[in-house]
Design a protein around this nucleic acid. Sequence first.
DNA 1: ATACAGTGTTGACACCGTACACATGAGGTG
DNA 2: CACCTCATGTGTACGGTGTCAACACTGTAT
Lengths: 219, 219
Amino acid sequence: MTTRPNRAARPGSYHHGDLRRALIEAGTALARAGGPDAVVLREVTRQVGVTANAAYRHFADRDALVAAVCSDAQTAVALTMEAELAEVEPSGDDGADACAHLRAVGAGYLRFAATEPGLFLTAFSVPDDLRRAASEDSAGDSGRTPFQLLAGALDEMVMAGVLAPERRPGAEFLAWSAVHGLAVLALGGPLSGLDRATLERVGQRLLEMVDAGLQGPRP
Amino acid sequence: MTTRPNRAARPGSYHHGDLRRALIEAGTALARAGGPDAVVLREVTRQVGVTANAAYRHFADRDALVAAVCSDAQTAVALTMEAELAEVEPSGDDGADACAHLRAVGAGYLRFAATEPGLFLTAFSVPDDLRRAASEDSAGDSGRTPFQLLAGALDEMVMAGVLAPERRPGAEFLAWSAVHGLAVLALGGPLSGLDRATLERVGQRLLEMVDAGLQGPRP
DNA sequence: ATACAGTGTTGACACCGTACACATGAGGTG
DNA sequence: CACCTCATGTGTACGGTGTCAACACTGTAT
């Protein structure tokens, strides 16, 4: 995990330059193509050109390898979110801006799921008690993880006065659940087969629902 | 689950009485304990006391077996939902009742996920283009699948006038996404580790959010 | 120069899904 | 009754997987 110098391996050298990194990258390629189950240890080592057991010098077991790939995938999600956030033009109205930021975070999540299904599933279908969500291993350019980007948008809404402070705690889980559910149902689950257009439309409405629903029952 | 004659196999008989059913039930037991990945074909046949290859007389491959287990699991979800629906006392206000029914469906979904995590994941993490959601193989006592129970509650809301008709199409996907997301995040995903109490609380708020959010942005 | 610790290799094991050929026996037909 | 047939279960085998234990190589510090 430390910043190994990444000295290139001289070809034909017995020792690989930075095997750990190489394994993670090959694993990421497999995950991108086929989700977490596709990152099979033997295939990863094969692609890197090394014996299967060599991986055990860098990872306790296969699960540790996919966990590393998972962190990388979360970083990719954060980058997509940041891109979406960057496209929001300030309108002068802090409340509207905060809502737009929340929508951007959600839209980034959904866009990533649609664009990189394999990586998406790898990022968020791995058991993990929120530790990775707070670890800088999963952060994007802004130094924040997807979870932290979401939390930031919600904080902003409170500060702008468009979300009641007493509704703030735990709001991450509500918003996250909504977008995550759609993504998962559409990817591996019973909603595969829905065409991209309707999926896009449902996604938009879902974000509206979160926006309206976070503030609780209507007066 | 169906009413197959289920003639008991005479012990020592070469032919098993109703192997297909026996395999599904053993598979369900495994799924209950460890989710879809735990239903491993060889172990299933071992428990039934039969050779691994015998399963291939009844299922094209392992995936077909877990698909059958999946249908059974969805039936179990429908039963939990129906139980939750039965507890709703009519209040005289059709609109309130319809909302209560929607909440009951969602609460049943979440309760099943918390009570039977393995079965839940098996029910809804299997690729499938909504065909199973409409098949009577997945229905409960009322003859309706979880998906159909959800759709029914939403229809009721429209009829009672608490959901605008133009918001009805696709509303299943919105509500389903929300509860499904929470369930999945809490089970296999990054939200495992959240204790049961907070999970319960988040679940309640999530149902509120759906209720309020389905009707779109506030005036 | 030598010892050592880190890294990669070899060989093996248990387990999995699955294909093929074969054995069994229940039920219909003469 | 004898016979045939076909659905069903068995045996054996193959390629794939994750992982372990013992061994081989090599860059580095003594």
